[in-house]
């Protein structure tokens, strides 16, 4: 086999490995609504949002000047952001059978609505919404957050 072909194959295998580690992690929720410039930075790629796009722990949700996006997580937590927002789901653990529960969200900028789901119902202290300087502890509830530099 020609050397270049072999190295191409190695490159393909390497690429498959790096992307599959991400793709093999289970979805934690899905995009449901979007308008304007709305993206998900996932596993080193930037994806345009569409309804049904799978979200995974660590994904960054971003919107532009005219953008907005809504998502629902598997425990029925509902979040939606307005324009110029950046939101990260830093931690997601939803295995109620094993008692493993946790949700950590960080809003870096923009506006967001948060409606708590099953994790907050089962273990309220395990749910945190963080901003640059503050932390919001959730006790089964719906609220709005705005973060501006």
């Amino acid at each position: 086999m020609a050397v270049w072909l072999r190295s191409l194959r190695y490159a393909a295998i390497l690429l498959a490995f790096t992307t599959s580690a991400y793709a093999e992690s289970d979805p934690i929720g899905y995009v449901k609504t979007h308008a304007g410039a709305a993206f998900v930075d996932a596993g080193g790629e930037t994806l345009e949002a569409f309804p049904g796009l799978a979200l995974r722990e660590g994904d960054v949700i971003r919107t532009g000047d005219d953008g907005r996006l809504g998502l629902t997580l598997l425990d029925n937590t509902v979040m939606s952001v307005g324009p110029n927002a950046e939101l990260v789901v830093e931690e997601y653990l939803f295995r109620p059978g094993e008692g493993e529960l946790g949700l950590g969200v960080r809003l870096l900028r923009g506006t967001m609505q948060f409606i708590s789901g099953v994790i907050a119902k089962l273990r309220p202290e395990a749910v945190k919404v963080r901003t640059t300087t503050g932390t919001i502890g959730v006790r089964g509830t719906r609220f709005l957050v705005k973060v501006e530099d």
Partner: peptide, 21 residues
């Protein structure tokens, strides 16, 4: 510039948030 506001839930009840600085 950065703040959080509590809303009523869909069922009309209102929960609680604890804000830490």
């Amino acid at each position: 510039k950065s703040w959080v506001v509590l809303l009523p839930n869909e069922d009309g009840s209102t929960g609680r948030i604890i804000v830490s600085g």
